[in-house]
């Protein structure tokens, strides 16, 4: 239960980090909050030869709004997402989601960039990026690369990041006046990884959806968008339509099985979440729509 021996380098600039990455390639791991990496190292599931500690890089911090984009630095910690007024105003989905991630002591260390680069299929933040149609900004020696969230997550612990790139920030389109967010997950205990979960953003007008992005997690090898959401766009929503769409959604899935839940249990939970999510989004949309 102790990590095997490794080298450690604390870097003072992104440039220095990228140099170290290109020097050591896949034998290196970037260390930010370490709340997923260090448990894996203690359990000897991974044994990198060198850790490159980017924790001091101020240029990877900060939350800012620039016209209609919310930019969040990779080193932003979960606790900062939870308490940020900018996040609460422009991406309330993230404020909701972070409450479900682990526990206070872990949220004080874990980072947004770390969670996304780790790409655990049961993690909350990757699904939020997909729901919010985020752009992930990767930094390499040739400059920046902008990657859509839908292309970024490629499988269990697998992303579009190259071994010599680091995740610098994410950019999110800010919430519009008629947009509503919803987050819910099922877990055995609060703070555990989810058995199934959903993160969603929708635009609601005249009691229907003009946009609907529902990203599900813990039900595939990566977060996935519900294709069945298309059935609910620009039509009058009835309970029958929601029921049909949630069945169609269940049929899209082939969830993995583990000690936590069987495949059919995950499919069932995801269908329940689908229905609850649609109903909650509509109710919230009506609430805000009625006031405006």
């Amino acid at each position: 239960m102790k990590a095997s021996a490794f080298d450690y380098a604390r870097v003072a600039s992104i440039h220095h980090a990228l140099e170290m990455l290109s020097l050591h390639g896949e034998q290196a791991k970037l260390l930010s909050g370490g709340q997923s990496l260090l448990p894996a190292m203690n359990l000897r599931l991974v044994s990198p030869q060198i850790l490159i500690d980017i924790g001091d890089l101020a240029e990877l911090r900060g939350i800012a709004v620039d016209s209609d984009v919310l930019r969040i630095g990779a080193l932003t910690r979960h606790v900062e997402l939870l308490t940020s007024h900018l996040v609460a105003a422009h991406a309330p989905l993230l404020s909701d989601a972070v409450k479900h991630i682990a526990h206070p002591a872990i949220r004080n260390r874990g980072t947004l960039g770390g969670s996304l680069a780790h790409a655990d299929p049961a993690a909350e933040l990757p699904a939020c990026m997909l729901a919010l149609n985020a752009t992930i900004i990767a930094c390499g020696r040739d400059g920046e690369r902008r990657i859509a969230a839908a292309e970024f997550f490629q499988g269990i612990y697998a992303t579009a990041l190259r071994p010599d790139e680091l995740l610098a920030a994410v950019e999110l389109p800010i919430a519009r006046q008629n947009s509503v967010d919803f987050f819910q997950e099922f877990a055995r205990r609060h703070g555990d990884y989810a058995l199934a979960g959903v993160a969603a953003r929708a635009s609601v007008a005249s009691g229907g959806f003009s946009k609907l992005r529902m990203a599900f997690f813990a039900i595939a090898d990566r977060p996935v968008l519900a294709n069945a959401a298309a059935k609910l766009l620009n039509v009058a929503i009835t309970p029958e339509l929601i029921a049909d769409a949630s069945v169609a959604f269940g049929n899209e899935l082939n969830p993995p099985e583990d000690q936590q839940a069987s495949s059919s249990m995950r499919r069932h939970l995801a269908s329940v979440l689908f229905r609850r999510c649609v109903e909650a989004l509509l109710a919230r949309g009506r609430l805000y729509g009625g006031a405006g």
Binding site: Y8, L31, G34, Q35, L38, P39, N42, L51, V79, P104, A105, I106, N108, R109
Partner: peptide, 9 residues
């Protein structure tokens, strides 16, 4: 701030 001492080097 509270942290896990086993998850910090």
């Amino acid at each position: 701030e509270i942290v896990r001492a086993c998850l910090m080097l």
